[in-house]
Each structure stands twice: as C-alpha cells, then as structure tokens.
Design a protein around this nucleic acid. Structure first.
Lengths: 179, 179
DNA sequence: GTCGATTGCCTGTCTGAACAAGTAAATCAC
DNA sequence: GTGATTTACTTGTTCAGACAGGCAATCGAC
C-alpha cells in the first residue's frame, strides 16, 4: 500500500485527495481505460483484503485454501490446486506454511501412497468465522451505497468482463497446444 | 494459469467448460459474490497481461514503469513510486532489473546527490509500440461485444467500486495514524 | 508381469509486492 | 553552524505466483 496518503495523518481526508489516490496512473491511462480500471480496482481490493487478513494471521490466498477445506473437508493437494485454479508448486508451499501455522495437518492418503490428505485442524475452526467476517466486510465496503439492482448489475458487468477474458484465454490456449 | 483446461487440448472448448474455468471457486463464492468476481477478474486479467508481456520480454509491472518513462522522460525513483503508487523497495529492484535488461539507464541527479534519474534507453523505444499494442489488445479482449454505452457503464461501475475501496482505505488509514 | 506414460508432489529460480531497518544526503529549526 | 528531522534509496526477509526439472508411485497397454 506504500505510503497511503502522504499529506494525511492529521484530520479528515478531503474528497480530492481520495480522488487523487484513486487514480494513481493518470498519464498512461488513456490507452486502455477499462484495463486500467480493472488493474487499479484489483490492486485496491487485494490490498484491502490483505490488511483484513493480516489481523487474523493469514496471508492473501491462504484463506481460500482454508475455506475450501472447511467446506469440503480433507483434500489432496491436487484437489486444492484444481479448486483454486492454482499451481502445484505454490500449493506445496502454501500448505507447508499453513501447516507450520497450525491451521492444517497432513495425513497420508490410505489409497494412494503418493498423495497426502490436507485437513483443517481444530484450531483452525476458530478462524472460520473471522474469515467469513473479512469476506463480508470486504463485500460491504466494495458495494457501499449500491442498491440491490446496482449490485446485480455490477456483478453482471464483472462477470461479463471475466467471461471475455476466459474465452480469450481458452482460445489462445488451444491455439498453441504445445503443453 | 496452471493447466488451463485439463480436458481440452483436442478440439473446440464447449461453453460449459469455459464457464467452468471462469468460476474456479464455486463453493465459497456464496459469501461475497462481488468480491469474488473482482478477485477472479483480477486473476484472469493479470494472467492475460502477463502472457502478452512475456512475449515482449517484460514482466507485469515493468511495463507501467516504462510507459511513464516514455511519456514523462527521466524520473527519480521516488517520482516513479508516487506515479505508480508503488513501494520504494520494489522500485529499487524493478529499476535494477530493467537496467540489467537494457531498457533503462541511471544517471546521477545533478541537483541531489541522493537521487538518480532513471531514463529509458534508445533500445527501449522499440518496445513502446509493442507495449501499447498489448494494452490495446487487452482492452479489446476485455470489452469484446460491448457497445460504447456498455463500456462507459462498465468503466463507471469499476470506478465506483474502486472509489468505495479507496475511501475505506483512506478512512482506516487515518483511523490508526501509527506510522 | 513388464514397460511406458501419467499423476502427485517437491525443489530451485525468478518475479512482484509488502514490511522493517538501515545509510547517506538534504533540509529545517534554532 | 549545529543538531534534529525528513527524504532518497538500499538491503533483508517473507509471501504469492509462475516456470522448469525431477522423483516416486500409480495406471494402462501389452
């Protein structure tokens, strides 16, 4: 988040200052306004989520692993990778850190000696409500001042952009099938 | 991006498969639908930008530094940090890598012996058009099938969400001014 | 059964991003 | 001018994420 607001620290933040901080890339923004907006929104959103998660002892990304484990029960790493559309290498390290933090435990799979089952610990269940509060807080903040209709419209917009990118990714993926 | 589409690789990707890949977090998504949509959109967008940038020899983030240098001319690192709303430490390393890649050069500031001026090299100017093409391509893909009105509406939506988060960030920043 | 391919997982490496801490130069207060 | 503070930058550490490579267990074709 860097220095957030250099001139702040004392009193109220004027609306212009917020507007300023909202548009950190005024110069090169002319090129792709929507792309730039996605980029900036993503930055802020991730930063905010990171702040909230830090207070409960999780790093961004770890909460998603835990949520899946809480909902679905013990999973192999491969399953987690598929659920999160993540990377096996990243999952190896994320699980190890969660294990070191005491939030998950590994148990050898009874049917496949290559795999191990990752399961949430009892200690982790205390986190669950906090994680849900973080998500709910994030949602409230993001959609502050929006009516139900506007939220539905915003969701459709986001999903439409996502769908466009997903289709393009799938197209370019089977355009060069060298993997 | 991981394995994109496990069952693909042969022919066309059915719409359901795209939809599947579009929603990698179906389970825990019920909590904050908009937050989740932002998260997924951001992931895809970043991944796509990364793919395009990789072909021209840049890593995500580096292109923003270069765009500012091309537009504004030589800048101190502090200026770049402020323009990108980034971090001084990150900027130190990013500039070093761009320097090693031959895209920027450092020159000591004539007026401030603490600072150095970062300037784009002649070699870097060949990149400029390619970077602009990447941004334009990304914009086209993201907004495919949207009318001008819909693009404007999407932009307003994104900026509204961004504004909400920016205000909340500013508020929580001057709520605890211990920094 | 045996051999080859696939699957599950790990390590190494490189990148951005964030935080903490430190150094050196410039600026401000007196 | 002297001392305290601020500024510009660097380094160290830790995290996620992506890619390459590698090992061992499993599965499939034969």
């Amino acid at each position: 988040m860097a220095q957030s607001t250099p001139e702040a620290g004392s009193g109220r933040v004027p609306a212009e200052a917020v507007q300023e901080a909202t548009v950190p890339v005024p110069a090169a923004a002319g090129s792709g306004p929507i792309s730039h907006a996605i980029f900036r929104l993503a930055r802020l959103h991730r930063m905010f989520a990171g702040q909230l998660l830090r207070r409960i002892g999780l790093h961004p990304g770890q909460e998603l692993v835990m949520m899946h484990l809480w909902e679905l029960g013990p999973q192999r790493q491969t399953d987690l990778v598929r659920l999160l559309d993540s990377d096996a290498a990243t999952m190896t390290r994320t699980v190890r850190r969660l294990e070191q933090a005491g939030f998950v435990r590994r148990r050898p799979s009874p049917t496949d000696r290559r795999a191990s089952l990752i399961e949430p610990t009892a200690a982790s269940h205390a986190l669950r409500r906090e994680v849900e509060q973080v998500w709910s807080r994030l949602e409230d903040i993001s959609t502050a001042g929006l009516s139900d209709d506007e939220r539905a419209a915003a969701l459709r917009t986001l999903e439409r952009l996502e769908h466009n990118l997903a289709v393009a990714a799938a197209d370019s993926a089977d355009a060069d099938p060298q993997r």
